[in-house]
Design a protein around this nucleic acid. Structure first.
Lengths: 221, 221
DNA sequence: GCAAAAGTGTTCAATGTACACCCATGC
DNA sequence: GCATGGGTGTACATTGAACACTTTTGC
Protein backbone atom coordinates (compact mmCIF):
# COMPACT_ATOMS: atom_id res chain seq x y z
CA UNK A 1 0.00 0.00 0.00
CA UNK A 2 1.16 3.49 -0.70
CA UNK A 3 2.05 5.67 2.22
CA UNK A 4 -0.82 7.77 3.44
CA UNK A 5 1.45 10.64 4.42
CA UNK A 6 1.51 12.08 0.96
CA UNK A 7 -2.09 13.19 1.15
CA UNK A 8 -2.77 16.81 1.82
CA UNK A 9 -5.87 17.82 3.67
CA UNK A 10 -7.58 21.18 3.41
CA UNK A 11 -10.77 22.81 4.50
CA UNK A 12 -12.79 24.73 1.96
CA UNK A 13 -15.69 26.94 2.91
CA UNK A 14 -18.70 28.05 0.98
CA UNK A 15 -19.63 31.31 2.67
CA UNK A 16 -23.18 32.41 2.01
CA UNK A 17 -24.68 35.78 2.71
CA UNK A 18 -27.64 37.84 1.61
CA UNK A 19 -26.35 40.90 -0.15
CA UNK A 20 -27.93 43.24 -2.65
CA UNK A 21 -31.09 41.12 -2.39
CA UNK A 22 -29.24 38.10 -3.68
CA UNK A 23 -27.83 34.94 -2.21
CA UNK A 24 -24.10 35.39 -2.63
CA UNK A 25 -20.96 33.40 -1.96
CA UNK A 26 -17.51 34.68 -1.16
CA UNK A 27 -14.90 33.91 -3.80
CA UNK A 28 -11.19 34.54 -3.97
CA UNK A 29 -9.35 35.14 -7.19
CA UNK A 30 -6.28 32.96 -7.33
CA UNK A 31 -2.94 34.72 -7.75
CA UNK A 32 -0.93 31.69 -8.81
CA UNK A 33 -1.10 28.38 -10.61
CA UNK A 34 -2.91 26.11 -10.80
CA UNK A 35 -6.01 27.90 -12.02
CA UNK A 36 -4.31 31.30 -11.82
CA UNK A 37 -6.87 34.13 -12.00
CA UNK A 38 -9.81 31.73 -11.66
CA UNK A 39 -12.16 32.22 -8.75
CA UNK A 40 -12.21 29.76 -5.88
CA UNK A 41 -13.89 29.34 -2.53
CA UNK A 42 -11.70 30.18 0.47
CA UNK A 43 -9.72 27.32 1.87
CA UNK A 44 -6.53 26.38 3.60
CA UNK A 45 -4.49 23.59 5.04
CA UNK A 46 -5.43 22.06 8.34
CA UNK A 47 -2.80 22.48 11.03
CA UNK A 48 -1.55 19.38 12.71
CA UNK A 49 -3.10 20.03 16.11
CA UNK A 50 -6.13 21.86 14.87
CA UNK A 51 -9.68 20.59 14.90
CA UNK A 52 -11.37 20.53 11.50
CA UNK A 53 -14.00 23.02 12.54
CA UNK A 54 -11.38 25.29 14.11
CA UNK A 55 -9.49 25.24 10.84
CA UNK A 56 -12.66 26.26 9.03
CA UNK A 57 -13.26 29.06 11.53
CA UNK A 58 -9.70 30.25 11.11
CA UNK A 59 -9.90 30.37 7.33
CA UNK A 60 -13.20 32.16 7.61
CA UNK A 61 -11.80 34.69 10.05
CA UNK A 62 -8.83 35.33 7.81
CA UNK A 63 -11.16 36.18 4.96
CA UNK A 64 -14.02 37.99 6.65
CA UNK A 65 -12.98 38.95 10.18
CA UNK A 66 -16.21 37.38 11.32
CA UNK A 67 -16.40 34.98 14.24
CA UNK A 68 -19.13 32.89 15.77
CA UNK A 69 -21.19 32.26 12.75
CA UNK A 70 -23.10 29.28 11.59
CA UNK A 71 -20.76 26.63 10.24
CA UNK A 72 -21.62 23.15 9.09
CA UNK A 73 -19.53 20.40 7.62
CA UNK A 74 -21.32 18.98 4.61
CA UNK A 75 -19.03 16.76 2.54
CA UNK A 76 -15.47 15.68 1.97
CA UNK A 77 -14.24 15.72 -1.60
CA UNK A 78 -11.26 13.62 -2.58
CA UNK A 79 -11.34 12.38 -6.14
CA UNK A 80 -7.74 11.77 -7.15
CA UNK A 81 -8.05 14.12 -10.13
CA UNK A 82 -9.66 17.05 -8.40
CA UNK A 83 -6.35 18.84 -7.81
CA UNK A 84 -3.59 18.88 -10.42
CA UNK A 85 -0.33 17.16 -9.52
CA UNK A 86 -1.22 16.48 -5.91
CA UNK A 87 -3.64 14.48 -3.84
CA UNK A 88 -5.67 16.97 -1.92
CA UNK A 89 -8.63 15.90 0.13
CA UNK A 90 -10.85 18.75 1.21
CA UNK A 91 -13.27 18.75 4.10
CA UNK A 92 -15.94 21.21 3.05
CA UNK A 93 -18.06 23.44 5.20
CA UNK A 94 -20.70 25.96 4.48
CA UNK A 95 -21.08 29.10 6.54
CA UNK A 96 -23.89 31.59 6.92
CA UNK A 97 -22.92 35.13 7.68
CA UNK A 98 -25.13 38.05 8.61
CA UNK A 99 -25.05 41.04 6.37
CA UNK A 100 -24.72 43.37 9.36
CA UNK A 101 -21.66 41.48 10.62
CA UNK A 102 -20.32 41.88 7.16
CA UNK A 103 -20.49 45.65 7.49
CA UNK A 104 -17.58 45.44 9.89
CA UNK A 105 -15.47 44.25 7.05
CA UNK A 106 -14.72 47.75 5.83
CA UNK A 107 -13.40 48.73 9.25
CA UNK A 108 -10.69 46.14 9.09
CA UNK A 109 -7.37 46.24 7.35
CA UNK A 110 -8.44 43.26 5.38
CA UNK A 111 -6.90 42.75 2.00
CA UNK A 112 -9.95 42.44 -0.14
CA UNK A 113 -8.48 43.24 -3.50
CA UNK A 114 -8.96 39.72 -4.79
CA UNK A 115 -11.98 38.79 -2.76
CA UNK A 116 -15.49 39.31 -3.94
CA UNK A 117 -19.09 38.25 -3.52
CA UNK A 118 -20.86 36.55 -6.39
CA UNK A 119 -24.47 35.58 -6.85
CA UNK A 120 -24.74 31.86 -6.34
CA UNK A 121 -27.02 31.72 -9.36
CA UNK A 122 -24.52 33.46 -11.62
CA UNK A 123 -21.06 32.20 -10.84
CA UNK A 124 -17.89 32.90 -12.80
CA UNK A 125 -15.70 30.07 -14.03
CA UNK A 126 -14.30 28.37 -10.95
CA UNK A 127 -11.06 26.61 -10.08
CA UNK A 128 -10.80 22.90 -9.24
CA UNK A 129 -14.15 21.24 -8.51
CA UNK A 130 -15.42 24.28 -6.70
CA UNK A 131 -18.49 24.64 -8.88
CA UNK A 132 -19.55 21.20 -7.72
CA UNK A 133 -18.71 22.01 -4.10
CA UNK A 134 -20.86 25.13 -4.17
CA UNK A 135 -23.81 23.33 -5.76
CA UNK A 136 -23.54 20.57 -3.20
CA UNK A 137 -23.43 23.15 -0.39
CA UNK A 138 -26.54 24.80 -1.76
CA UNK A 139 -28.41 21.50 -1.84
CA UNK A 140 -27.42 20.79 1.75
CA UNK A 141 -28.40 24.27 2.85
CA UNK A 142 -31.82 23.88 1.27
CA UNK A 143 -32.35 20.58 2.98
CA UNK A 144 -31.17 22.01 6.25
CA UNK A 145 -33.76 24.72 5.88
CA UNK A 146 -36.47 22.08 6.00
CA UNK A 147 -35.39 21.06 9.47
CA UNK A 148 -34.18 24.19 11.15
CA UNK A 149 -34.85 27.89 10.78
CA UNK A 150 -31.24 28.35 9.78
CA UNK A 151 -32.09 31.38 7.67
CA UNK A 152 -31.96 33.43 10.87
CA UNK A 153 -28.21 33.13 10.66
CA UNK A 154 -28.32 35.36 7.63
CA UNK A 155 -30.41 38.12 9.19
CA UNK A 156 -29.62 40.91 11.63
CA UNK A 157 -30.65 40.63 15.27
CA UNK A 158 -34.02 42.19 14.53
CA UNK A 159 -35.77 41.71 11.26
CA UNK A 160 -39.15 41.92 9.60
CA UNK A 161 -41.17 38.95 8.47
CA UNK A 162 -40.81 40.09 4.91
CA UNK A 163 -37.04 40.05 5.26
CA UNK A 164 -37.24 36.54 6.67
CA UNK A 165 -39.45 35.43 3.81
CA UNK A 166 -37.12 36.95 1.23
CA UNK A 167 -34.25 35.03 2.79
CA UNK A 168 -36.12 31.77 2.40
CA UNK A 169 -37.02 32.66 -1.16
CA UNK A 170 -33.44 33.47 -2.09
CA UNK A 171 -32.16 30.21 -0.66
CA UNK A 172 -34.88 28.06 -2.16
CA UNK A 173 -34.96 30.07 -5.38
CA UNK A 174 -38.73 30.15 -5.45
CA UNK A 175 -41.48 32.44 -4.33
CA UNK A 176 -43.49 31.70 -1.22
CA UNK A 177 -47.01 32.71 -0.30
CA UNK A 178 -46.94 35.56 2.20
CA UNK A 179 -49.89 34.45 4.33
CA UNK A 180 -48.86 30.83 4.46
CA UNK A 181 -45.30 31.75 5.26
CA UNK A 182 -46.29 34.00 8.17
CA UNK A 183 -48.74 31.49 9.55
CA UNK A 184 -46.11 28.78 9.47
CA UNK A 185 -43.25 30.72 10.96
CA UNK A 186 -45.37 32.25 13.71
CA UNK A 187 -46.70 28.82 14.66
CA UNK A 188 -43.17 27.60 15.33
CA UNK A 189 -42.79 29.71 18.50
CA UNK A 190 -39.29 30.71 17.62
CA UNK A 191 -39.90 34.42 17.23
CA UNK A 192 -40.03 37.27 19.70
CA UNK A 193 -42.38 40.02 18.65
CA UNK A 194 -41.05 43.50 19.39
CA UNK A 195 -42.81 46.82 19.72
CA UNK A 196 -40.32 48.34 17.34
CA UNK A 197 -40.92 48.89 13.69
CA UNK A 198 -38.65 49.07 10.74
CA UNK A 199 -38.33 52.55 9.28
CA UNK A 200 -36.02 51.63 6.47
CA UNK A 201 -38.81 51.15 4.05
CA UNK A 202 -40.32 54.46 3.05
CA UNK A 203 -43.83 52.99 3.34
CA UNK A 204 -45.80 51.44 6.18
CA UNK A 205 -43.44 50.42 9.00
CA UNK A 206 -43.03 46.68 9.52
CA UNK A 207 -42.94 45.03 12.92
CA UNK A 208 -39.56 43.71 14.02
CA UNK A 209 -38.97 40.21 15.31
CA UNK A 210 -36.01 38.45 16.78
CA UNK A 211 -35.15 34.86 17.20
CA UNK A 212 -35.84 33.19 20.57
CA UNK A 213 -33.32 30.39 20.53
CA UNK A 214 -29.61 30.15 20.81
CA UNK A 215 -28.68 29.90 17.16
CA UNK A 216 -26.10 27.24 17.86
CA UNK A 217 -28.56 24.81 19.32
CA UNK A 218 -29.53 23.76 15.83
CA UNK A 219 -27.12 20.97 15.84
CA UNK A 220 -28.84 18.23 13.97
CA UNK A 221 -26.39 16.09 12.10
CA UNK B 1 2.11 26.77 9.51
CA UNK B 2 2.92 23.16 10.09
CA UNK B 3 3.30 20.92 7.10
CA UNK B 4 0.11 19.25 6.11
CA UNK B 5 1.84 16.09 5.00
CA UNK B 6 1.93 14.63 8.46
CA UNK B 7 -1.80 14.07 8.51
CA UNK B 8 -3.01 10.57 7.91
CA UNK B 9 -6.32 10.00 6.24
CA UNK B 10 -8.45 6.92 6.61
CA UNK B 11 -11.91 5.73 5.72
CA UNK B 12 -14.02 4.10 8.42
CA UNK B 13 -17.24 2.31 7.64
CA UNK B 14 -20.24 1.61 9.76
CA UNK B 15 -21.70 -1.49 8.15
CA UNK B 16 -25.32 -2.12 9.04
CA UNK B 17 -27.30 -5.26 8.46
CA UNK B 18 -30.43 -6.91 9.74
CA UNK B 19 -29.46 -10.13 11.45
CA UNK B 20 -31.19 -12.25 14.06
CA UNK B 21 -34.04 -9.73 13.98
CA UNK B 22 -31.74 -6.96 15.12
CA UNK B 23 -30.00 -4.01 13.54
CA UNK B 24 -26.36 -4.94 13.74
CA UNK B 25 -23.02 -3.38 12.88
CA UNK B 26 -19.83 -5.12 11.87
CA UNK B 27 -16.98 -4.71 14.34
CA UNK B 28 -13.39 -5.85 14.28
CA UNK B 29 -11.46 -6.70 17.40
CA UNK B 30 -8.12 -4.94 17.34
CA UNK B 31 -5.03 -7.12 17.58
CA UNK B 32 -2.58 -4.40 18.50
CA UNK B 33 -2.17 -1.11 20.28
CA UNK B 34 -3.63 1.39 20.55
CA UNK B 35 -6.89 0.03 21.95
CA UNK B 36 -5.68 -3.56 21.67
CA UNK B 37 -8.59 -6.01 22.05
CA UNK B 38 -11.17 -3.26 21.87
CA UNK B 39 -13.74 -3.42 19.11
CA UNK B 40 -13.64 -0.97 16.23
CA UNK B 41 -15.45 -0.33 12.98
CA UNK B 42 -13.58 -1.45 9.86
CA UNK B 43 -11.32 1.11 8.32
CA UNK B 44 -8.14 1.62 6.38
CA UNK B 45 -5.83 4.11 4.80
CA UNK B 46 -6.76 5.76 1.56
CA UNK B 47 -4.38 5.01 -1.27
CA UNK B 48 -2.83 7.92 -3.05
CA UNK B 49 -4.66 7.49 -6.32
CA UNK B 50 -7.82 6.08 -4.91
CA UNK B 51 -11.16 7.84 -4.72
CA UNK B 52 -12.61 8.10 -1.23
CA UNK B 53 -15.61 5.99 -2.09
CA UNK B 54 -13.44 3.41 -3.81
CA UNK B 55 -11.36 3.19 -0.66
CA UNK B 56 -14.52 2.60 1.34
CA UNK B 57 -15.63 -0.09 -1.10
CA UNK B 58 -12.26 -1.76 -0.89
CA UNK B 59 -12.26 -1.86 2.91
CA UNK B 60 -15.78 -3.19 2.83
CA UNK B 61 -14.88 -5.89 0.34
CA UNK B 62 -11.89 -6.94 2.39
CA UNK B 63 -14.14 -7.49 5.37
CA UNK B 64 -17.31 -8.86 3.91
CA UNK B 65 -16.62 -9.93 0.29
CA UNK B 66 -19.68 -7.92 -0.64
CA UNK B 67 -19.70 -5.53 -3.57
CA UNK B 68 -22.21 -3.12 -4.94
CA UNK B 69 -23.99 -2.22 -1.79
CA UNK B 70 -25.40 1.01 -0.54
CA UNK B 71 -22.66 3.30 0.64
CA UNK B 72 -22.96 6.87 1.82
CA UNK B 73 -20.41 9.32 3.15
CA UNK B 74 -21.83 10.98 6.25
CA UNK B 75 -19.13 12.85 8.17
CA UNK B 76 -15.42 13.43 8.51
CA UNK B 77 -13.98 13.22 12.00
CA UNK B 78 -10.70 14.89 12.79
CA UNK B 79 -10.40 16.11 16.35
CA UNK B 80 -6.68 16.22 17.12
CA UNK B 81 -7.12 13.94 20.15
CA UNK B 82 -9.21 11.24 18.54
CA UNK B 83 -6.24 9.04 17.73
CA UNK B 84 -3.33 8.61 20.17
CA UNK B 85 0.06 9.88 19.05
CA UNK B 86 -0.96 10.67 15.51
CA UNK B 87 -3.18 12.99 13.58
CA UNK B 88 -5.66 10.80 11.81
CA UNK B 89 -8.58 12.28 9.92
CA UNK B 90 -11.22 9.75 9.00
CA UNK B 91 -13.78 10.10 6.27
CA UNK B 92 -16.72 8.01 7.49
CA UNK B 93 -19.25 6.10 5.47
CA UNK B 94 -22.16 3.94 6.38
CA UNK B 95 -23.08 0.90 4.36
CA UNK B 96 -26.21 -1.19 4.17
CA UNK B 97 -25.76 -4.84 3.39
CA UNK B 98 -28.38 -7.45 2.61
CA UNK B 99 -28.61 -10.42 4.86
CA UNK B 100 -28.74 -12.77 1.86
CA UNK B 101 -25.55 -11.30 0.43
CA UNK B 102 -24.08 -11.88 3.81
CA UNK B 103 -24.76 -15.59 3.49
CA UNK B 104 -21.98 -15.75 0.94
CA UNK B 105 -19.58 -14.87 3.65
CA UNK B 106 -19.25 -18.44 4.86
CA UNK B 107 -18.29 -19.59 1.35
CA UNK B 108 -15.25 -17.37 1.31
CA UNK B 109 -11.88 -17.91 2.85
CA UNK B 110 -12.42 -14.78 4.84
CA UNK B 111 -10.60 -14.50 8.11
CA UNK B 112 -13.48 -13.81 10.43
CA UNK B 113 -11.90 -14.80 13.69
CA UNK B 114 -11.83 -11.26 15.02
CA UNK B 115 -14.81 -9.94 13.17
CA UNK B 116 -18.30 -10.00 14.57
CA UNK B 117 -21.72 -8.47 14.35
CA UNK B 118 -23.08 -6.54 17.29
CA UNK B 119 -26.48 -5.10 17.98
CA UNK B 120 -26.30 -1.36 17.46
CA UNK B 121 -28.35 -0.94 20.61
CA UNK B 122 -25.97 -2.98 22.72
CA UNK B 123 -22.42 -2.21 21.73
CA UNK B 124 -19.26 -3.33 23.49
CA UNK B 125 -16.64 -0.82 24.57
CA UNK B 126 -15.21 0.67 21.40
CA UNK B 127 -11.81 1.98 20.32
CA UNK B 128 -11.12 5.62 19.46
CA UNK B 129 -14.25 7.72 18.93
CA UNK B 130 -16.03 4.89 17.20
CA UNK B 131 -18.98 4.94 19.57
CA UNK B 132 -19.62 8.49 18.45
CA UNK B 133 -19.13 7.58 14.80
CA UNK B 134 -21.68 4.78 15.02
CA UNK B 135 -24.26 6.95 16.78
CA UNK B 136 -23.78 9.66 14.18
CA UNK B 137 -24.18 7.09 11.39
CA UNK B 138 -27.40 5.88 12.95
CA UNK B 139 -28.81 9.39 13.12
CA UNK B 140 -27.95 9.97 9.47
CA UNK B 141 -29.44 6.64 8.45
CA UNK B 142 -32.68 7.47 10.22
CA UNK B 143 -32.86 10.83 8.56
CA UNK B 144 -32.09 9.27 5.20
CA UNK B 145 -34.99 6.90 5.73
CA UNK B 146 -37.33 9.89 5.75
CA UNK B 147 -36.30 10.75 2.21
CA UNK B 148 -35.63 7.48 0.50
CA UNK B 149 -36.77 3.91 0.93
CA UNK B 150 -33.21 2.97 1.69
CA UNK B 151 -34.33 0.09 3.89
CA UNK B 152 -34.66 -1.96 0.71
CA UNK B 153 -30.91 -2.16 0.71
CA UNK B 154 -31.11 -4.36 3.76
CA UNK B 155 -33.62 -6.83 2.34
CA UNK B 156 -33.34 -9.70 -0.10
CA UNK B 157 -34.55 -9.29 -3.68
CA UNK B 158 -38.04 -10.39 -2.73
CA UNK B 159 -39.51 -9.71 0.64
CA UNK B 160 -42.79 -9.49 2.48
CA UNK B 161 -44.33 -6.27 3.69
CA UNK B 162 -43.91 -7.46 7.24
CA UNK B 163 -40.19 -7.88 6.66
CA UNK B 164 -40.02 -4.38 5.24
CA UNK B 165 -41.90 -2.99 8.21
CA UNK B 166 -39.64 -4.80 10.67
CA UNK B 167 -36.64 -3.28 8.92
CA UNK B 168 -38.04 0.21 9.39
CA UNK B 169 -38.85 -0.55 13.00
CA UNK B 170 -35.37 -1.82 13.73
CA UNK B 171 -33.75 1.24 12.20
CA UNK B 172 -36.08 3.73 13.84
CA UNK B 173 -36.24 1.75 17.09
CA UNK B 174 -39.97 2.19 17.35
CA UNK B 175 -43.06 0.25 16.41
CA UNK B 176 -45.13 1.23 13.41
CA UNK B 177 -48.81 0.66 12.71
CA UNK B 178 -49.24 -2.19 10.25
CA UNK B 179 -52.15 -0.74 8.27
CA UNK B 180 -50.67 2.73 8.03
CA UNK B 181 -47.29 1.37 7.04
CA UNK B 182 -48.74 -0.72 4.24
CA UNK B 183 -50.93 2.08 2.98
CA UNK B 184 -47.95 4.42 2.88
CA UNK B 185 -45.45 2.13 1.24
CA UNK B 186 -47.93 0.88 -1.36
CA UNK B 187 -48.85 4.46 -2.26
CA UNK B 188 -45.24 5.24 -3.14
CA UNK B 189 -45.30 3.09 -6.29
CA UNK B 190 -41.92 1.65 -5.60
CA UNK B 191 -42.99 -1.96 -5.16
CA UNK B 192 -43.62 -4.77 -7.59
CA UNK B 193 -46.24 -7.17 -6.38
CA UNK B 194 -45.42 -10.80 -7.16
CA UNK B 195 -47.60 -13.87 -7.37
CA UNK B 196 -45.19 -15.69 -5.15
CA UNK B 197 -45.65 -16.16 -1.48
CA UNK B 198 -43.25 -16.63 1.34
CA UNK B 199 -43.27 -20.12 2.82
CA UNK B 200 -40.71 -19.49 5.51
CA UNK B 201 -43.32 -18.65 8.04
CA UNK B 202 -45.17 -21.75 9.13
CA UNK B 203 -48.48 -19.87 8.99
CA UNK B 204 -50.37 -18.07 6.28
CA UNK B 205 -48.04 -17.37 3.34
CA UNK B 206 -47.21 -13.71 2.80
CA UNK B 207 -47.10 -12.07 -0.58
CA UNK B 208 -43.66 -11.21 -1.91
CA UNK B 209 -42.71 -7.80 -3.24
CA UNK B 210 -39.63 -6.44 -4.89
CA UNK B 211 -38.32 -2.99 -5.40
CA UNK B 212 -38.98 -1.24 -8.72
CA UNK B 213 -36.12 1.21 -8.85
CA UNK B 214 -32.43 0.98 -9.36
CA UNK B 215 -31.26 1.12 -5.77
CA UNK B 216 -28.39 3.39 -6.66
CA UNK B 217 -30.60 6.12 -7.99
CA UNK B 218 -31.20 7.30 -4.45
CA UNK B 219 -28.43 9.75 -4.64
CA UNK B 220 -29.67 12.67 -2.71
CA UNK B 221 -26.87 14.53 -0.99
C1' DG C 1 -55.15 60.87 -2.54
C1' DC C 2 -52.26 57.53 -4.22
C1' DA C 3 -48.40 54.44 -4.33
C1' DA C 4 -46.17 50.86 -1.81
C1' DA C 5 -45.41 47.43 1.30
C1' DA C 6 -47.67 45.42 5.71
C1' DG C 7 -50.86 42.71 7.46
C1' DT C 8 -54.69 39.37 7.82
C1' DG C 9 -58.49 34.12 7.25
C1' DT C 10 -60.94 30.73 4.97
C1' DT C 11 -61.57 26.81 2.12
C1' DC C 12 -60.04 22.62 0.27
C1' DA C 13 -56.84 18.78 -0.46
C1' DA C 14 -53.51 15.72 1.07
C1' DT C 15 -51.32 13.40 4.50
C1' DG C 16 -50.78 11.27 8.98
C1' DT C 17 -52.76 8.76 12.95
C1' DA C 18 -55.58 5.91 15.69
C1' DC C 19 -57.86 1.86 15.86
C1' DA C 20 -60.08 -3.99 15.44
C1' DC C 21 -61.43 -7.68 13.07
C1' DC C 22 -61.39 -11.54 9.54
C1' DC C 23 -58.32 -14.70 6.62
C1' DA C 24 -55.34 -18.51 5.15
C1' DT C 25 -52.54 -21.81 6.46
C1' DG C 26 -49.83 -25.53 9.40
C1' DC C 27 -50.13 -28.35 12.88
C1' DG D 1 -60.14 -26.50 15.55
C1' DC D 2 -56.90 -23.45 17.05
C1' DA D 3 -52.76 -20.78 16.99
C1' DT D 4 -50.15 -17.69 14.20
C1' DG D 5 -48.97 -14.12 11.43
C1' DG D 6 -51.28 -11.97 6.97
C1' DG D 7 -54.27 -8.87 5.38
C1' DT D 8 -57.76 -5.07 5.22
C1' DG D 9 -60.80 0.30 5.86
C1' DT D 10 -62.74 4.20 8.19
C1' DA D 11 -62.91 8.41 10.91
C1' DC D 12 -60.52 12.20 12.58
C1' DA D 13 -56.78 15.54 13.07
C1' DT D 14 -53.03 17.95 11.18
C1' DT D 15 -50.69 20.10 7.71
C1' DG D 16 -50.04 22.28 3.27
C1' DA D 17 -51.76 25.09 -0.64
C1' DA D 18 -54.52 28.34 -3.02
C1' DC D 19 -56.30 32.69 -2.93
C1' DA D 20 -57.69 38.88 -2.30
C1' DC D 21 -58.53 42.61 0.21
C1' DT D 22 -57.75 46.26 3.92
C1' DT D 23 -54.31 49.07 6.58
C1' DT D 24 -50.69 52.25 7.38
C1' DT D 25 -47.54 55.26 6.11
C1' DG D 26 -44.60 58.70 2.98
C1' DC D 27 -44.84 61.62 -0.46
Amino acid sequence: MQESKTHEVTVDIVIFTIRRKKLEVLLVQRGHEPFKEKWAIPGGFIRLTEDLEDAAKRVLYERTRVKNLYLEQFHTFGEPGRYPNARVITVSYFALIRSDDLMLEADQDLDIRNVNWHSVYNLPSLAFDHENIIQTALKKLRRRLEYTPVAFQLLPEKFTLTELQKTYELILDKELDKRNFRKKVLSLSILNEHDEFSKTSSKRPARLYSFTENPFEFNYM
